[in-house]
Simulated scan of single mutants.
Amino acid sequence: MEKHIMGENGISYTLEEDGLYYPDLYLPEGTEYPIGKYGILRKSYLKEHRKGLYLELILAGKLNEHLHQVDEECNQMMDRLVEQMKEKQGVTEKLKMQNQMEWVGKMNNIRACAEEMILKEIVCE
């Protein structure tokens, strides 16, 4: 049996040790982007709940780019929401200096609320 063959569909295949031919598929160059927390969460969500979209992105070679965009969008939204909530709740540097434990508690609450909103609106859409 030949080590490499060309299929009728124009895709080349390579014979592996298990005796099966596997397609030689490669991602286009320049598609490797760093992915953070929200990108990883989005990937898990797509795998479990949106398998069709997940496979479509993989086959188009756009999964990594999509995850990177989602991660960037989530991080920007997180920064915006935290600042808006801090302003509405009166969480200032003055409070931080006067009562550090209260400031930490409020900031933790703000971050948790902002993250919950991001997960519902972007990651799990």
Rank of each mutant, 00 (worst) to 15 (best):
L119G: 00
K106R: 15
N9M: 10
L63Y: 10
T14F: 10
S12M: 14
G61E: 06
K88N: 11
K47A: 06
T92N: 04
G7C: 11
S44H: 11
E8I: 05
Q98D: 15
D24S: 09
I118V: 07
D79I: 09
C124W: 12
T31H: 14
L41P: 06
I118N: 06
A114C: 05
L15N: 10
L81E: 11
L67W: 05
E93R: 02
W103M: 00
N109L: 06
T92Q: 07
M85K: 10
E17P: 05
H49K: 15
M6P: 02
C113N: 14
H66Y: 14
Q76I: 01
T92G: 01
H66V: 02
K94D: 14
Y22H: 13
E48M: 10
Q89M: 15
P28V: 03
D24T: 07
E116R: 09
P34G: 00
G10F: 08
R50F: 08
Q84Y: 03
I122S: 03
I40R: 06
E8H: 12
M101C: 00
N99L: 03
D18I: 04
P28I: 03
E121H: 05
E116P: 02
M1L: 09
C124I: 00
E125Y: 10
Y54V: 04
E87T: 13
E2Q: 11
V82C: 01
E48G: 02
P23D: 04
